[in-house]
């Protein structure tokens, strides 16, 4: 089975999820769990860094969809960054750039959060 790992860290009250490996139907529940943990502790400002994400399936994308409403309802957001062209292509094909802010670099995503609160 392909590996999938999630790292979580915090900078300036923003939580960064670092995804690594294959995010597919099999591993999607792990990401769900990570989001559930953030949301139950009222963390709504989230950046997902996809630097080491090598594959994403629609079930993986579905996780983002499943949580975005609750996050935005609480004045937060899920922003994405550092996607490889292959991963970006999947996001793009399914129309995600319309719904999510996707940044080249994590710091741009973080800045967007910080600027907004100023």
């Amino acid at each position: 089975m392909s590996e999938f790992k999630i790292g979580v860290r915090e900078t300036e009250g923003i939580h960064v999820l670092e995804l690594k490996g294959y995010l597919d139907a099999h591993t999607a529940p792990k990401l769900e769990e990570a989001f559930t943990n953030l949301l139950t502790s009222n963390r709504y400002r989230i950046v997902v860094n996809c630097k080491d994400l090598s594959y994403i399936s629609s079930a993986g994308l579905g996780v983002f969809m499943a949580y975005i409403e609750d996050v935005r309802k609480n004045q937060g957001d899920i922003k994405l960054s550092n996607m490889s062209p292959k991963v970006y292509n999947v996001f793009d094909l399914l129309g995600f750039p319309l719904l999510y802010e996707i940044f080249k670099e994590e710091r741009e995503a973080l800045r967007k959060f910080v600027d907004k609160t100023k």
Partner: peptide
Amino acid sequence: DKLVRLLVLSLLGQIGVN
């Protein structure tokens, strides 16, 4: 239950519905 959840996630992701 897990099957249904996976179906939901896939639909949300693939079709872009909420």
